[in-house]
């Protein structure tokens, strides 16, 4: 079933398309969540939450956006909320801060399961550097460079202009280069 058929069925209030939506979009949702939260179990959890929200709001979906774009937005919101919650938990609590081990503050290396074997180490460095970018630059870079979406679709998902996306990605790349240069120079 293609995007147009899915959209049409959803608009007719046909919730029986839900298994088709899960089948078609699970890879997209899981990969996007995985690139943002950088943890397989958390990405799996977010994927389930995304589809539950999709099911609950299926009848309210209007064709203001493509089904994919709508699901991407839900995924990104869920993944970013998850990250914020995690950061709050990490920094919250005076006692926790006093007794926490300093080493925990360093992000753990994430090995993307899809990365090519000879690129695994570099991909881990890339994901670690991505975490240091501002949220919107990280998002734009992830959607374009890792998910392989065109600028136009990234703009639709992020509800911004094409120019803004281009600018975000360019600034993201510049910042990434700086972070990576510092990393490789310090690890010599």
């Amino acid at each position: 079933m293609n995007q147009a058929d899915l959209t049409a069925k959803i608009q007719n209030g046909d919730t029986s398309v839900f298994p088709d939506i899960v089948e078609q979009c699970q890879q997209m949702v899981y990969n996007t969540a995985l690139s943002i939260v950088q943890n397989e179990a958390d990405a799996e959890d977010i994927t389930q939450e995304v589809f539950i929200e999709v099911y609950e709001n299926l009848t309210e979906f209007r064709q203001e956006a493509q089904v994919n774009t709508w699901i991407y937005r839900i995924t990104i919101n869920k993944a970013l909320d998850f990250e914020k919650r995690k950061k709050r938990q990490k920094h919250g609590g005076l006692l926790k801060r006093i007794f926490s081990v300093r080493a925990e503050e360093e992000p753990i290396n994430f090995n993307h399961p899809g990365a090519q074997l000879d690129n695994k180490e570099k991909a881990a460095v890339l994901f670690r550097a991505l975490k240091k970018l501002p949220e919107n630059q990280q998002l734009a870079f992830t959607l374009h460079k890792i998910e392989g979406l065109p600028y136009k679709e990234v703009a639709a998902i992020m509800e911004t202009s094409l120019y803004a996306v281009e600018s975000l990605i360019a600034r993201g790349k510049t910042s990434l280069k700086k972070i990576l240069e510092d990393y490789y120079q310090s690890s010599e």
């Binding site: 298994p19 899960v22 089948e23 699970q26 890879q27 899981y30 990969n31 995985l34 397989e40 990405a43 799996e44 994927t47 389930q48 589809f51 993307h112 399961p113 899809g114 990365a115 090519q116 690129n119 570099k122 991909a123 460095v125 890339l126 550097a129 460079k145 890792i146 790349k173 990434l176 280069k177 990576l180």
Partner: peptide, 19 residues
């Protein structure tokens, strides 16, 4: 090379029986 390290990556798949 690091920036382009995910270019040829395969998409990850969630565990089976997601539905």
């Amino acid at each position: 090379e690091t920036i382009n390290s995910m270019d040829a990556a395969d998409p990850a798949m969630p565990a089976p029986f997601l539905l």
